Simulated assay, not measured.
Amino acid sequence: MRNYKLENIDIEDIELVLQKIEDTFEFRFVSNELINVTNFGELCDAIMNKITLEHKEDCTTQQAFYKLNEILTSEFGLDGITPKTKLSKIFPKRERLKLIRKVERKLNFKLNITEPKRIYTNLLLIFFCISIFSFFYDYKIALIGIGISIFGIWITHKLGKELNLNTIGELAEKMKRENYIKSRRNPKYINKNEIEQIIIDLFSIELDLDKKELTRSALI
């Protein structure tokens, strides 16, 4: 069976995923440290070798849920929260951004669980494309249009209130994946059994890859 090749993916996209991995596990690769890595398994091993914290057999998703539950109970007076509790119930639309920011301050990291309505983003992208074509007629108008569309995309993403997750359980999984160390009860320990699956999840989500393709023999 032919091995899948990650080399078909743009190197810049792979580097962005590696930056997310570095952020979630709080380490940094030095220049050319991965130059001899040839497959996905070696990449996972290289990441594991950078994480020098002690192993502890526990569930980080569960700890992330407990952190959320504690904040929502103490700050919002909510109780009876379960992994299946809807985020729309916790963060009603009128006060959604304000309440999310309050939780983020307690967690000390961004959750990134809101986005603008798709129609607004699509309209701004269309306007951006039209502005690009305007270079053939009037470069000043084109530059103004590009500036307006870029600013519009930025502001709609900043102020967008649509949730991109459904439940508290999904949010706890996202916290584990994107802020692993900060989601744990004791940041001095990790569960090494979770690490490779998190790496696979991040590559799959960020690069839109089938997890079945991300075998240890997949070529880079």
Rank of each mutant, 00 (worst) to 15 (best):
K176I: 02
N108P: 05
I200N: 07
R118K: 11
C59M: 08
E178S: 05
K158C: 04
L6E: 09
N191G: 03
E70D: 13
S131G: 02
M48L: 14
N193H: 07
I71F: 06
E42R: 10
K106T: 06
L125Q: 10
L207T: 06
L72S: 08
K212I: 06
S31D: 11
I51V: 15
N8H: 05
L159H: 12
E54K: 15
K211V: 08
R216P: 01
T73G: 06
A172R: 00
T114V: 13
E75S: 06
M1N: 05
K182C: 05
I130F: 01
T60V: 13
T121C: 02
R185Y: 09
M1E: 06
F135L: 00
E33P: 10
S31Q: 13
L214K: 07
Q62W: 09
D208T: 07
A46N: 08
F29I: 10
K192F: 05
R105P: 01
L87C: 11
K212M: 03
C59R: 14
F27I: 12
E70T: 08
T85A: 04
L107S: 02
S149Y: 01
G152W: 13
K182T: 10
I119R: 12
C44W: 05
I100M: 10
I155K: 14
H157E: 11
T52N: 15
M1F: 08
E33Q: 15
N122A: 14
D79T: 11
D208F: 04
N49V: 08
I126W: 00
D23Y: 03
L125R: 13
K102C: 07
T215K: 13
I14K: 15
F135M: 01
D10E: 15
T73V: 01
L123C: 05
K110E: 15
E194K: 12
D201W: 03
K192L: 04
P83I: 01
T85I: 08
L165Q: 15
T82K: 13
I148Y: 00
F151P: 00
T73R: 11
I51T: 12
L16S: 13
I100D: 12
E33N: 06
Q62S: 11
G77F: 09
R2W: 10
N112F: 10
R28F: 14
V30I: 12
L124C: 00
L159G: 05
P83D: 00
D23P: 01
D45V: 12
E42P: 08
L214R: 09
I205G: 05
I9S: 06
R94S: 15
E162S: 14
L53S: 01
K110I: 04
E194C: 07
P83A: 04
E26K: 15
N32Q: 14
I51Y: 05
K182G: 08
I198P: 10
N186W: 03
N164W: 04
N49A: 11
S74F: 02
G80T: 03
G77A: 09
D10K: 13
E12F: 07
M48N: 11
L219T: 14
T52S: 14
R96Y: 08
V103T: 04
L209F: 11
D210A: 07
L143D: 03
A142C: 02
R185H: 03
L111S: 09
L72F: 05
G169L: 07
E194H: 12
I146K: 00
G145I: 02
I14H: 08
Y4Q: 07
F136N: 00
N39F: 02
Q62C: 07
I119L: 11
E33G: 09
K98Y: 10
F133V: 02
N112M: 13
